[in-house]
Simulated scan of single mutants.
Amino acid sequence: MMKQEEFRRLVRGESRGWLASATRGALWVLSLPYALGVSLRNLAFDRGWREVVRARLPVLSVGNVTVGGTGKTPMVEYFASQLREKGLRVCLLSRGYGVSDGPNDEALVLEENLPDVPHLQGRNRAQLATIADEELESQVLVLDDGFQHRRLGRDADVVLIDATDPFGGGRLLPAGLLREPFSSLGRADLVVLTRRDAIDEDQRRSIKRRLGRWTKAPWAEVSFDPTALVDAEGAERPIAALAGKRVATFCGLGNPEGFRRTVALLGGETIDHRDFPDHHPYSRDDIESLLAWVAEVRPELVLTTQKDLVKVRLTLLGSVPLAAVKIAARVDEGAEAIDHVLAQIAAKVPREE
């Protein structure tokens, strides 16, 4: 089976040779029925042929148009935190990718970082909205990964664009990384460029100019700052503790390059890295493999992401400390546009009787 990073290189056109070209051609053919399905589904909602369920509470959707790795979890955390600071009772709603017998990795991270914000997961988000309203007495709903979930109406659509891979190869799945064509950005109320510090100003302007063909929505740019090192027991250490350390890293993300780039800027010496598929569940065999790997490369510290640590749940790999890099969103441009969206959402909160 093709690894995640190999697939990304393939659809970006970075893999060369006749086999890579033939594979891209086959994937393009496979993308045609997907494109037709996406177009028909969006047309059905646009024309009112499919029902849109309106919740009594205002809904803020945070999503994207590419698969994996745009930074949805820290951005959902950011928007929920901002609404909480306005004194509102917030509830998160999500599909819950990978959910079987409990909350998935994203829900566990948000539960740790937002302990006073409930998180409901399930396929029927309209039903979850009712539960949040009637049983949890919420005032505002934040829909995680909601851009393609059009059945639940929303009052604002925030769409995230990853600066390190903004166009997803320019093709729909499986020929590229696009979940929808960029014309769908016409539905966006706010476009947010994430990881903006990973590229220069000219590149940011180019991305904004190209996306301007499909949307006139307000624009914002954010970076993700490392704030602390946290272990499985919740103990935190300052980022400065990394200085001069020999570090091994692993992660299971849609875009592992973002994590590797973050670690590279923290002052430690990265001696090896292992990638796992997005939302990887980490079996006993995986843990044994990690233990053997750590024994081989002999780092002073092993780093991963919060999404991975909540599933591994170890403070040590062998005798080596294991910690996650805790990150938070920082708004670099467009704070007024973000504040305007949040104010619109807050203004629609039903008055309490």
Rank of each mutant, 00 (worst) to 15 (best):
A323C: 03
A243R: 10
V349L: 03
E333N: 13
D339C: 02
N255I: 02
L314V: 00
A243H: 09
G318L: 02
L316G: 00
R237Y: 01
A347I: 05
P238T: 07
A343Q: 14
D285I: 08
V230E: 06
K307L: 08
T270M: 01
R330Q: 13
L266C: 04
E288C: 09
D286N: 13
V341Y: 02
D231I: 00
Y282E: 06
G258Q: 13
G258C: 09
G318F: 04
A329I: 03
I327V: 15
K245I: 01
G334F: 09
L266T: 03
P281D: 08
G258W: 06
D231P: 04
T305R: 10
L316K: 15
I287L: 14
V325H: 05
I338Q: 10
A347V: 10
E336C: 03
V320F: 00
K348A: 07
E336N: 03
A232P: 02
K311H: 07
F250R: 06
V230F: 01
P277I: 09
E257F: 11
A323P: 01
F276M: 02
A337Q: 11
G254W: 09
W293I: 12
T315V: 12
A324R: 06
F259A: 13
D231R: 00
K311Y: 13
V349T: 09
F250A: 05
L317W: 10
R330A: 11
A328P: 05
I271A: 07
L266K: 01
Y282C: 08
K348P: 05
L316V: 02
I345T: 15
L317G: 09
D278I: 04
I287M: 05
H280N: 01
D286W: 09
G252Y: 11
G334S: 15
P256T: 08
P277G: 08
K348N: 11
T315M: 08
V294I: 13
T227A: 06
A324C: 07
A347K: 14
Y282M: 01
A228H: 07
L242H: 14
V320I: 14
I271L: 15
E288R: 15
T262V: 13
G258L: 07
A346L: 12
K326Q: 10
L314C: 03
L301S: 06
P277W: 10
H340N: 11
A295T: 04
A347P: 13
G252C: 11
A264R: 15
R260F: 12
S319H: 01
L309K: 09
L342S: 10
D286A: 13
N255E: 11
T305K: 06
V247I: 07
H280Q: 07
T262N: 08
A264H: 13
H273A: 12
R274A: 00
A241W: 01
I338K: 12
E288W: 02
L266W: 09
F250Y: 02
F276N: 07
A248T: 04
A347M: 12
F276D: 02
P238N: 12
P350C: 14
E233C: 03
R298A: 10
L253S: 14
V325S: 09
